[in-house]
Design a protein around this nucleic acid. Structure first.
Lengths: 198, 198, 198, 198
DNA sequence: GATGAATGAGAATTCATTCAT
DNA sequence: TATGAATGAATTCTCATTCAT
């Protein structure tokens, strides 16, 4: 009988160690040796769990994007504008941890971003979120919650960009918590006024 | 007698060649060899103009941020909300080209982003823009153009993030021109309603 | 109580799997993992039967050379030239399978061929065959079957080289069966004429 | 002006150093580091001249096969049997140096030998030589030098295999010069008798 | 005996930078 | 100034072998 190992746990340990190193030194500056050391395993073992550095960063990315999708996408359509705004607000507030990952993502995939194959995945992610918001806006119009003149589709897409921009700036520029929460309130206020009927 | 060379012109050629390669292959995948070839000079010559790859990307970055600052920052304070909105709109429409540079920036500096010394420069850039908008909002409040309850400083900062997010998504996800211009209109509308007095 | 296993059978399974992989991917490209997988045993088990990859290939080689020796070496001295030629002919025709092993042998032992200790084994093999033929030639001379001027020893050795060359080319270059059998006839004819008394 | 270097000379130095190491330690055991050291250049420089270890061994192989072709292929058709035999004899005697390369070739390309693309090159080489001999045999038949019943094509091909076998055994088994030269004579004698009219 | 997870020495290759001409 | 050959540190990935269970 071989050593009994919780493979998922090991993967998590590695991902954790890798993430810490990536955050500290950047993706390119972090070597597989470092990650192995940080995880307290041999380099060969590392490759047992992730076939390459690419696979490793891709796995981490996938996890983060899943989480992002989960955070940005309400489970069901909101019936009132306030509900939706509340949801957006939470999305904006939640992501301390995740927002720090964004620069790593760009560093790792920067050179592939132009590759359509690759980018499509992420375009789809935001399009999906945009689509959801667009549908929700239609419902909110029916519910008399939002001005009927709204271009549901395009506004939803621009809203997603704005949200992403805010999260991104937070991650990059380490905006302090206090100031950031007011910024979020301000953003929500503008969205409310911009969307409300009359 | 030294050869007579327009140093600045040469630098521009190099920057241009480098930028094209960075856009095409990413920062890390682009080698100094490639850049030299593309510029039609020898590798040694390249190093006469830019002491290192780091210096080169930093120079390019500086240029781009200067341009960005120029695009996003009105020359003088706007006296009406509509003027300001017009300005923002133009900023959003102008920057097709520049937005493509952002991933390169992230890729190149990703590993240094944690370095506060480094990041401060870029944080400052956006803070500066934010500061300008904040001041302008104060003027617009005085001019009775904007609701007096606005948190000028924080809103200015979040506005900058949103603008950046929109530009970025355009650059990344190649949103089609038609759709994008409507998105811009939508964004402006929301800003207008969100800022207007009652 | 230990599991009851037919050790020899297991060894044969492993050798078989290894050989298939070696033939398909070459010796160096074939990993111990692959061999274990192909044999449907765990890698650790593989090492219970063969202490190392070297031991494994050596075992296989030994088997093949034994077989080769068997094929090339008549059981007893031939009393007529025709008998000997018949024997050579059969040797040339039999060895389709074995000739494919030769490149593997070279690939595996290439780096050790200079080691005299190692090479001696295989040199001896051919010398042994050569020696047998030499002895047989002496008998055939006595029997008035072969011209008495023959340098029995050297000719025997060159004959072995030629036979080996023919087998080898067949294995390597996949000479078609039809053509090959004529080639064999041609070779035998030349040997006959070259050896016959006047 | 950069350093002035005779590139071809450098390539030759590298090939020489590589060949020495390959002969001494085998292809796989020889590292690019070793070759660089042996050539007294840095590893990076080595890669300036040969893009990979594969390219290096391929270049060496090509050189050797060219030489082999040159050695085995008469410049023009021989008009008498003795001329042809003389030619074959020389081919067999020349190749002290080259024959040592054969095991290296097998070690390096062993795993690709089954690949039809690869093997075709070498099959063609020997087929070419075979074709030449076949044509020459036809001429020799017309010239009344060789028995007219000879299967020119198949015999030519088997002759090539035999020659290759002899050269190969010499390279592998380090047959001593004295003995080898007698073996060559023996082989030539057999060929003469086997081919001669009556 | 059997398993397969863990190990880590090694190897090939890259590329920013230097430097002799 | 300009050149491009030379450098060698650094990095990813492989795989035979070991070993805890």
């Amino acid at each position: 009988m071989p050593k009994i190992v919780d493979k998922e746990l090991m993967k998590k340990s590695i991902i954790n160690a890798a993430l810490q190193s990536f955050l500290k030194y950047g993706f390119n500056k972090t070597t597989m040796d470092q990650i192995a050391n940080e995880t307290n395993i041999a380099k060969g073992t590392l490759y047992l769990y992730f076939k390459s550095k690419d696979v490793l960063i891709s796995s981490i990315t996938e996890l983060h994007f899943k989480k992002l999708l989960n955070d940005l996408l309400p489970k069901e359509y909101c019936q009132t504008l306030e509900q939706l705004l509340e949801y957006i607000k939470n999305a904006l507030l939640i992501n301390e941890e995740d927002s720090k990952f964004i620069p790593i993502f760009f560093e790792a995939f920067g050179s592939k971003l132009s590759s359509d194959v690759f980018m499509k995945d992420y375009k789809n992610l935001f399009d999906k979120i945009g689509y959801f918001y667009a549908q929700n806006f239609k419902i909110l119009i029916q519910n008399n919650q939002v001005k009927p003149t709204l271009n549901t589709e395009t506004f939803a897409r621009v809203l997603v960009s704005m949200i992403d921009g805010i999260i991104l700036h937070k991650g990059f520029f380490k905006i302090e918590e206090r100031k950031y929460s007011i910024m979020v309130e301000d953003a929500i206020d503008v969205f409310r006024l911009g969307l409300s009927k009359v």
